[in-house]
């Protein structure tokens, strides 16, 4: 207990001292990490937001199956329900559909309209909901082959495009994040190495008086973690302000645009999760950078 108190005391003091010695180099390290995590945060956020949008297209996981004239939807329903990729099937009889259509068109009298067209022109329809957007095309193909099915429709392209966009963004951001991670690690390594060099007399004396290697280098590792955490905090604040800015911008848009983009808002849970991920990623980058810095020097001695 006492030893751990001594340790904390020592580690904090030495870490702070190191940071003071670092001077403006600290800012080089912290701002690199902040830029990395900001871009990482944006890509993560947009990926989440697009997922949210895709979920709003939930109705477009739906395949509309139009049956041949005279075929009853109720008869076909049990068969379709047995397809493995189907999560839900609902029946829209031609009567219901006709009634909806007539009311949508604003016609007051349904029988008059029916009479004019010499009977209900529509057919029975099955609304089939797929389990995921990937299986929609395959499912539609299988449904089209069923006897009694006239035509199959699904909103393939929109879903596909958004999914593709999401994949594209993920790849681009993965590459950018990788490059920036390496940059941040390099900057932290350089910063910590400069601090180690500035304190090499102290380190030499410490080695000569029997300080253990971990005792000597733990403060430098902690310094790396501080860089990571500070960068993460800055990135998180930037991301939150960016969100706030967009929210204000959207508030002035027509209701229609607001409705479309409501899927873009992050939930509270996601906002906290984002902070957690940024802090974790930041300290990981910090530890890696400082490990590289002290490893080189430990190898020398």
């Amino acid at each position: 207990m006492l030893l751990s108190l001594t340790k904390t005391n020592y580690l904090l003091r030495e870490t702070l001292l190191g940071l003071r010695r670092g001077g403006w180099m600290n800012w080089a390290a912290i701002s690199t990490v902040a830029v990395l995590l900001f871009l990482f945060g944006i890509s993560l956020q947009s990926s989440w937001q697009l997922e949210g949008l895709l979920n709003r297209f939930g109705s477009q996981l739906e395949v509309s199956v139009y049956l041949d004239t005279g075929i009853q939807a109720r008869e076909l329903k049990p068969l379709v329900e047995r397809f493995p990729d189907v999560s839900e099937v609902s029946v829209v009889s031609k009567e219901e559909a006709w009634a909806n259509l007539v009311s949508d068109l604003g016609l007051s009298e349904i029988s008059g309209a029916t009479h004019q067209l010499e009977g209900n022109p529509l057919v029975d329809e099955l609304k089939v909901k797929a389990k995921s957007s990937q299986v929609v095309p395959g499912l539609a193909e299988k449904l089209a082959k069923l006897s009694g099915v006239d035509e199959v429709q699904y909103v393939d392209e929109a879903v596909q495009r958004v999914a593709e966009l999401n994949r594209g963004i993920r790849w681009v951001s993965f590459v950018i994040v990788m490059v920036l991670t390496l940059t941040a690690i390099a900057v932290i390594t350089t910063t910590i190495r400069l601090i180690v060099l500035a304190r090499r007399r102290e380190i030499e004396v410490m080695q000569l008086v029997g300080a253990t290697t971990s005792w000597i280098y733990l403060p430098f590792l902690l310094q790396g973690v501080v860089f990571g955490l500070a960068g993460a905090a800055i990135a998180w604040i930037l991301l939150l302000s960016l969100q706030q800015f967009f929210r204000h911008l959207l508030a002035q848009q027509p209701e229609f645009v607001q409705l479309l983009t409501s899927g873009l808002q992050l939930s509270l849970l996601r906002t906290i999760l984002l902070a957690g991920i940024l802090l974790g990623f930041g300290s990981l980058v910090g530890v890696m950078g400082s490990l590289f810095a002290v490893r080189k020097i430990t190898l020398k001695s």
Binding site: L5, T6, N9, V205, M206, L208, A211, W215
Partner: peptide
């Protein structure tokens, strides 16, 4: 091999810190 930016007392205490004394 004294550390320039630390006082005499700190230089001496430095050894004890390095060895984990409280």
């Amino acid at each position: 091999k004294l550390i320039p930016r630390r006082t005499v007392a700190e230089n001496i205490a430095f050894v004890l810190w390095a060895q984990g004394f409280d």
